[in-house]
């Protein structure tokens, strides 16, 4: 049984690794060579592709994406954690309604409010900046729902009661007791918001009209598109784009694992 488990894990891992590897390798080839067959071995065109990418102001755009994602993560985790705590761990009038509200907001398809959102952003005067792309994450329904469910599962009520009886203030409880327990959840949410805001394509496309404020996905779709598409250069850029997220996941997984010992929640 254990052997079977290992084999399955390895096979699936290889399947997961395969496309990522291919993407990296594709970035090292001459674009039209890619059409001759999926490359398994690295090519020799990496420098040229990198030149194409960097020539087009890649680093600046990278910075834009970083700003957007970091700000989005901060905003999203803040509001989501707070409301998650409220709904999951308190009894108050309107709790049920609030929970339904969160779930309802989660169900609104993202494309629904596109035009209206742009209009609103324009009226708020932040039309041609990075703010529209950041603010869309300020109230992140998935995040709120995730926090609600996660908190339900992971924070024992008696712990909170003890703290209250001990005279701890509510904010104090939140910061000193809840947050540490929530580390895995926080890490997960932060990483996901980072990822989603990093790869977001539609919103930046229609809200940002100045090339200098472009984020990475838009930038990449504009690489080498005169009369034919330079997939190789794009793959090189994509690989570089994926690195920060990968790093984040690697770091985050440390927290997921460390959180295991934080399971010392046995009062």
């Amino acid at each position: 049984m254990k052997a079977l488990m290992w084999i399955c894990l390895v096979v699936i891992s290889l399947l997961s690794l395969f496309p990522f590897y291919i993407m990296t390798v594709m970035g090292t080839h001459y674009n039209e060579d890619l059409f001759k067959g999926i490359p398994i071995l690295p090519g020799s065109y990496l420098q040229e592709n990198l030149k194409t990418v960097l020539k087009a102001d890649f680093l600046h755009v990278y910075g834009n994406s970083l700003i957007v994602s970091v700000a989005s993560v901060v905003l999203a985790t803040l509001t989501s954690t707070l409301i998650g705590y409220a709904v999951a761990k308190f009894e108050f009038k309107g709790r049920k309604w609030l929970q339904t509200f969160v779930i309802l907001t989660m169900m609104v398809p993202t494309q629904v409010g596109l035009i209206g959102y742009i209009i609103e952003m324009r009226h708020l005067g932040v039309g041609n900046t990075l703010w529209p792309v950041i603010l869309i994450w300020a109230a992140f329904p998935f995040g709120a729902f995730f926090m609600i469910q996660f908190m339900r599962d992971s924070i024992p009520n008696d712990l909170l009661e003890c703290a209250r009886i001990d005279g701890c203030s509510e904010p104090g409880i939140f910061v000193r007791i809840v947050l540490p327990i929530m580390k895995p959840g926080l890490a997960t949410l932060a990483t996901l918001v980072f990822l989603w805001s990093w790869n977001n394509y539609l919103l930046p496309l229609v809200t940002i009209n100045k090339s200098e404020w472009y984020t990475l996905p838009i930038f990449i779709s504009n690489l080498g598109i005169v009369h034919r598409t330079d997939y190789a250069a794009r793959m090189a850029a994509l690989t570089m784009t994926t690195i920060p997220v990968l790093i984040l996941f690697i770091l985050g997984s440390k927290t997921f694992m460390k959180g295991l010992t934080a399971g010392a929640v046995k009062g």
């Binding site: 742009i118 209009i119 041609n128 229609v206 809200t207 009209n209 100045k210 090339s211 472009y214």
Partner: peptide, 24 residues
Amino acid sequence: VEVTVVNPNDYLQKLQSGIASGSD
């Protein structure tokens, strides 16, 4: 002359969104 690079596949979408929302 200020240039904004836009992919032809997205061009019309971006243009219409811009006109519809009264932005740039």
